[in-house]
Simulated assay, not measured.
Amino acid sequence: MDELEIKVKLQISKPVSEVKDAIIRADKMANYFIAEGARNMEEGKNIQWTFPEFPEMIIDVKILKIDSDQVIFEWEGSKNKQLEVRIDLEERPGNSTLITVSEGKMKYDPEGIVWLKRNTEGWSNFLACMKAYLEFGINLRKGGFEFMKAS
């Protein structure tokens, strides 16, 4: 094993079009992932994300591709490393969507292992928070990271 790659999946009981809309529209993403005020994702554009719990952290995101069942962007997934993130949306029975988030790749070394743990946890949280928001209107992220703020 020379390279590590993140891949997480979760099914949401909403149609692909609604899930995709919640990913590319900043006003919707602010209910489960980013802070308010970001721009919508548009193919070929650069945007910035901030997070409600960490306003000092600004993430540059380059949108590479948006189509009916996929969103691809690039960001600094690990310190000084631009990594590609792919979000694939697969229509499932019952008007549901299987979301697969892939990020990577990085070397199988101590830095790569830290990245794999941190970002796998982050993308799993992203999917769980999106599911709670889309299916139940709940913002799971709100207050969830207070323990990480500097005292």
Rank of each mutant, 00 (worst) to 15 (best):
N119Y: 01
M29Y: 06
E5V: 13
T97C: 07
K131M: 07
Y133G: 05
S151D: 14
E90M: 15
K7I: 05
E84W: 05
D88Q: 11
K14I: 00
K65P: 01
R39Q: 15
I63E: 04
V114Q: 10
V71F: 02
A22E: 03
Y133I: 02
K107Y: 13
G104T: 05
G77C: 08
V85K: 03
G94L: 11
I12C: 03
I59A: 13
I47C: 07
S68Y: 13
E42R: 12
P15V: 07
Q11G: 06
G122L: 04
P52M: 07
S151C: 09
E111D: 10
W123I: 00
N31A: 08
K45E: 13
K28H: 08
Y108D: 15
M57G: 05
P15K: 05
S96G: 08
Q70G: 08
L140V: 02
G44N: 07
P110F: 12
V61D: 02
K149N: 13
G37Q: 06
A150H: 12
D88R: 06
I24W: 03
V114D: 11
I58N: 11
K65S: 09
I113L: 14
F33P: 01
M106V: 12
N40D: 15
M106A: 08
D67A: 07
R39A: 15
V114S: 07
L83Q: 02
A22N: 09
D60Y: 12
N119H: 04
G137A: 10
F147R: 09
E5C: 14
I138S: 01
F54A: 15
M29N: 07
K28L: 11
E121T: 09
F33S: 05
N95S: 13
W75I: 06
D2H: 14
G122Q: 03
Y108P: 01
F126T: 06
T50C: 12
R141L: 10
E84Q: 13
A128L: 11
L127G: 00
K65F: 04
F136K: 15
I72N: 02
E5P: 01
E42F: 08
S102C: 11
Y108R: 13
V61Q: 08
I47P: 04
M57T: 14
S13W: 08
C129R: 03
I6R: 00
V16L: 11
D60V: 12
E53I: 03
Q11H: 05
G143W: 06
T120M: 02
G37K: 07
K9L: 06
R141A: 06
R92A: 12
Q48A: 10
P15M: 10
K7C: 12
F147Q: 11
K131I: 04
E36P: 06
W123E: 00
I24G: 01
E43H: 03
S102Y: 04
S78P: 02
G37A: 12
G122W: 02
M57Y: 15
L10M: 10
I87M: 09
F136S: 11
E53D: 15
V8H: 01
V61G: 03
Y32H: 10
G77V: 09
I66C: 04
E42V: 14
A35G: 11
I63Q: 05
K62H: 14
